[in-house]
Design a protein around this nucleic acid. Structure first.
Length: 418
DNA sequence: TCTGGGGTCCTAGGACCC
DNA sequence: TCTGGGGTCCTAGGACCC
């Protein structure tokens, strides 16, 4: 049997670890909160109960928030990454999960060489208890004959309190479960497919699973067929190991728009620097650097512009100086005067291991230079690890007061963390 | 009159996920 | 006033090869 574990309301649960007094009260996590902008990214049961939804712009629901004394917390992505690492490490250490594979920041899959429902339930209960004890994060879990069915089981575990957070979907229960599952809630069916399926009269997961394979292939391609097989209890999906990403993105929506190239460059150099640091942490090099810019698409009264461009480096690198230089070059190419920019980001692409480097043909005599850069990066990371993020930085990143460690906003004083 | 048949690689954009 | 940030994979079409 495939098993699946998923943290409950992950972002909110992470915040409640350090603010336990808020447990039992409505809490949401939003971005750009201190600017009264932003949207709801995550919410707990209590917040859902008063009518809030993921994706609500804060300014549209201020009344509900005030009337119900909802606590709104600013998002802390790094905290969630750290807690995620903690959870995954704890689970790995127990060696309880066969074929462990992390799927996202807050969920993972595994296998269980047993389909006895009683033993499976005990086993999942032990995992669930372990994670709660070690990290204070509640999880829900499911088991089924494929990844998709295991994830479906977790969906039932979350939506039906009677399961108490654990749902085992045996082969016999499969059809009944799928007949109760709306097709839009199936993993792999997004908004587009849902719309087409609705037009074709397909309402439940079972309706879909009962169609012929050729029909599915014709209308929904290979991915559709994979989902179809999985729903029928035939494993068809492989999940790539999460330990080495293929790209790293760092982007922000700004609290205030800007039309200044200098301001953009300062922000972007910070994003590049943060992305490069994360890349070095996972011991990768990037071969490409992408930059994108966009105006506020919600402001129809303003001129719109968005663009992106990718620069291929002559050799893969993890050197912040080279990456920042690439970003400067890209900004030079993409920037247009007289637009109000609202969003920008840097993507480091085609990541590869730093263990096997393809040398730059034209820099082959520059090994000393390479070594010096490498040591420079190590020194910068070491200092910042010891004295705090951005303790030392490149001049182009701006003065300390400019750093927006938290989601966006120019000129906001740096938050000091003890 | 009549203009092939087979490949590979790259990229942009779509669709999906959390 | 105010509308997220991060990823993956697939496919179609263009450019190129013989």
């Amino acid at each position: 049997m495939y098993i699946h574990l998923d943290c409950n309301n992950f972002f909110v649960s992470c915040e409640l670890v350090s603010r336990p007094e808020l447990k039992g009260t409505p809490v949401v996590v939003a971005n750009n909160n201190d600017n009264n902008g932003g949207i709801i990214l995550a919410l707990n049961q209590e917040a859902k109960a008063v009518g809030l939804k993921r994706g609500n712009p804060i300014f549209q629901v201020t009344k509900i928030i005030e009337q119900n004394k909802v606590t709104v917390i600013d998002v802390h992505h790094q905290l969630y990454r750290d807690i995620s690492h903690h959870i995954m490490d704890e689970v790995r250490e127990t060696e309880m999960v066969l074929d462990f594979v992390q799927y996202s920041v807050d969920e993972f899959f595994g296998m269980m060489p047993d389909d006895d429902p009683v033993r499976l339930r005990e086993y999942l209960q032990r995992l669930k208890d372990l994670i709660l004890r070690k990290t204070d994060i509640p999880v829900s879990c499911g088991a089924g004959l494929s990844y998709t069915l295991a994830k479906t089981a977790t969906w039932f575990a979350k939506h039906y309190p009677a399961y108490q957070g654990i749902c085992i979907m045996s082969g016999e229960q499969r059809e009944k479960a799928l007949s109760m599952l709306d097709i839009k809630d199936v993993w792999g069916i997004g908004r587009r497919s849902f719309k087409r399926l609705a037009e074709l009269g397909i309402q439940t997961a079972l309706d879909f699973a009962n169609r012929k394979e050729a029909w599915v292939k014709r209308l929904f391609g290979v991915n559709g067929v994979r989902t179809w097989k999985e729903l029928n209890g035939v494993p068809a999906i492989t999940i790539a190991s999460h330990d080495r990403q293929k790209s790293i993105m760092y982007s922000r929506t700004f609290a205030h728009m800007t039309s200044s190239k200098e301001v953009l460059m300062r922000e972007l150099s910070n994003y590049a620097s943060s992305a490069a640091r994360r890349m070095r942490e996972q011991q990768s090099l990037c071969q490409t650097v992408t930059l994108f810019l966009a105006t506020n698409r919600h402001r129809q009264d303003l001129a719109q512009y968005s663009a992106d461009e990718t620069l291929r480096l002559s050799a893969a690198t993890d050197d912040s100086t080279l990456i920042i230089k690439a970003v400067e070059k890209l900004l030079e190419s993409l920037f247009r005067e007289n637009y109000q920019y609202k969003q920008a980001g840097v993507i480091l692409g085609q990541l590869q291991s730093n263990k096997s480097v393809q040398l730059d043909l034209f820099a082959i005599n520059d090994l000393d230079e390479k070594e010096r850069h490498k040591r420079l990066m190590q020194a910068i990371d070491g200092i910042n690890k010891r004295f705090g993020k951005n303790h030392i930085h490149f001049a182009i990143q701006g003065s300390e007061a400019d750093f927006s460690d938290q989601p966006a906003g120019f000129m906001r004083p740096k938050k000091v963390e003890s």
